[in-house]
Nucleic acid binder design. Structure first.
Length: 200
DNA sequence: CGCCGGATGATCT
DNA sequence: GATCATCCGGCGC
């Protein structure tokens, strides 16, 4: 399938886009190994008005500057000193919106992913959770601010999921965002095993 | 099973 | 010096 065009990422509504990304295919080509899968879980971060967003209130620092770029590039950063987290920058230049990719369902490069995750056999935790997913795909900050039509990391078009097949719920680990932590900005494919924290 | 805490470092105050 | 958009292993039930 073709890579998604810039116009897809530059849509205004980051929440709608977070849902549209479900079912699309994410790939990396790192250390000579192709790996990837179907995006199963996402979270929207809605720019300067969103207390959970790194760029809340217009905070534009060395780290967050990537979020202010035109949509269609990656935003990768180190979390808790250990995990790299992959986001897709959306919207247009100056509007710091992004979508955290929280889980994928592996389709290619299983051997490479098992090795990177130091796992013997396949289990959902291989790519369920943003840190796990980045490790499985060999993503680190070298891939920050990369165009999503690059040779090292890209997303290909695929199916769209109807709203009935999507669960909308609150984001993970953003209690510090107070009332904004209650916004239903996390989305995942209903019934899919590759989801970090399914609701009961 | 579920809860708890340690690992670990860039980033910003 | 505090704060994290996390993960895993260990312990107790």
């Amino acid at each position: 399938m073709p890579k998604l065009p810039p116009s897809f990422y530059q849509q205004e509504d980051v929440v709608s886009l977070a849902k549209q990304l479900l079912g699309k295919s994410l790939f990396t080509y790192v250390d000579g190994k192709l790996a990837g899968g179907i995006i199963t879980e996402t979270e929207a971060y809605d720019g300067v008005a969103d207390k959970a967003c790194h760029a809340y209130g217009g905070r534009n620092t060395n780290r967050t500057a990537t979020m202010f770029l035109n949509g269609g590039v990656t935003y990768v950063y180190l979390c808790y000193g250990i995990h790299h987290l992959l986001n897709v920058v959306s919207g247009t230049e100056g509007n710091p919106q992004a979508i955290l990719i929280r889980a994928i369902e592996p389709t290619v490069g299983l051997e490479a992913m098992l090795e990177r995750r130091k796992m013997e056999k396949l289990a959902p935790r291989i790519t369920a959770g943003p840190g796990a997913l980045a490790q499985a795909l060999g993503i680190d900050r070298q891939l920050n601010a990369k165009d999503l039509s690059a040779d090292e990391i890209w997303i290909e078009d695929a199916k769209n999921y109807e709203d009935e097949k999507i669960v909308a719920t609150t984001r993970i680990g953003v209690a510090y965002a107070q009332e904004h932590a209650l916004w239903p900005f996390r989305f995942y494919i209903k019934g899919n095993k590759y989801v970090s924290k399914p609701n009961s």
